[in-house]
Design a protein around this nucleic acid. Sequence first.
DNA 1: ACCGCGCATTAACCTGTGATAACCAGGTAA
DNA 2: TTACCTGGTTATCACAGGTTAATGCGCGGT
Lengths: 244, 244
Amino acid sequence: MADQTDCQDCQLRCRPLFVPMTADEVAFMRRFKSGEAVVPIGAEVMSQGQKSPVLQTVLSGMAVRTVLLEDGRRQVISFVFPGDLIGLHSGLMGEARHGVTAVTEMTLCSFPRGKIWDLFTNQPARAYDLTWIAAVEENFLGETVATLGQRDAIERVAWALVRVWRRLVALGMERDGAVPFPFRQQDLADALGLSVVHTNRRIVALRQAGLANITGRRLLMHDHARLSAIAHLDMEKDEVRPIL
Amino acid sequence: MADQTDCQDCQLRCRPLFVPMTADEVAFMRRFKSGEAVVPIGAEVMSQGQKSPVLQTVLSGMAVRTVLLEDGRRQVISFVFPGDLIGLHSGLMGEARHGVTAVTEMTLCSFPRGKIWDLFTNQPARAYDLTWIAAVEENFLGETVATLGQRDAIERVAWALVRVWRRLVALGMERDGAVPFPFRQQDLADALGLSVVHTNRRIVALRQAGLANITGRRLLMHDHARLSAIAHLDMEKDEVRPIL
DNA sequence: ACCGCGCATTAACCTGTGATAACCAGGTAA
DNA sequence: TTACCTGGTTATCACAGGTTAATGCGCGGT
């Protein structure tokens, strides 16, 4: 395991996006961590309807959280980025109600499910953070519901692009006005409740308006302010959040 | 405060819908509880954008959780029923991103925000439950996103009615094949991302098909199985959940 | 250098839902 | 009794977005 990241040296958790950990917490996480997993592009990190034996924090790579419907359609619940936690639901409740599929190769930091109780009894601060993470996620889903329920197509697409952009910028992944964008237009469409065709129409419109552009697996942001205005997202600084 | 419910005698938490509490937990909750609040019909339990000094469990009555958009439109994020927790977000993170408005008179069991930390340090089992509650809620919002993103109007309406029905039945509120339904069609429409007019068209269709009927602030369920099929909800037993 | 395949893009056509508006039923205030 | 208000119902018409299908294009494989 010489190639694994020691929590002590973990670059990810030091990003300003995340709440800093105390030395004590880092020490606990090192004991809590059971290993790392590498997931190839396109593979399922977690399958809908199954129990997951682990809780995982994304160290690198991206994924989509999806619900598969009986009739074959799917809904992308959310995009998954480095720092996000996977498996909390299935960890606490029974089986997972959604699946997680990697859209790039990913490395995951694994924590055994059996030790969660240990975390609650011995590390109240970490338990608090875990709840906080769940609350952040719930909050975000609330915004998603509002977007799908009330916004029209251009607004939805703009919203998704700005959300992805801001998150990756906060992670320090921006280079020359662009961030990685490994998602397909089909993923975007499934996330926004639109058809691929119409999603494409709207993306083209944004491109022609000179606001943003998706090309070569990258998202180029030309006018963050105007796009945010279309998305009805204010320009406030994103809040920090805990990381496991 | 002679008219307040003692946690010891609380009928609500004894419903089979909820995970039973140990005597020790009940004792803690009695100390944790700071009082009760009665909210009149139509009043705001919590306002969007404000800090809430308390965490509250609904003892009786119902509400809608809503997000107000700049342009005056609103999205109903979810309906709130007895046993639900209000204020977790604003309790952990800063201010609330959504508001809660009573659609009937409500009684709420209040817990001071300042004691949350106490809960995490001294009652790990209760802290675990709190996280569990957050996860259940998040899970439900995921289902909501899938519904708004992928379902058409009839399916959405059916979904909402079945969800409300099952929850109230689990709470023992069913009488003669009907449960209280204090929400307006406008609330339903705002929850499902439909116009009131179209929501009404679909409700009428369900009524004429003899599946369900909303009348006199009550929901009559005539064919739970068929309505569930339309809503793409399977007939499995609802899981239990913790209550604070 | 050519083939094949997954994605993006465009076009033509169709439909579910929204917007508007008018009307109705029941509750309540005077 | 009347007037008024809230919430539900119905009809008409327009359009955002869905559906289908054909075309283009870049890239890895042979």
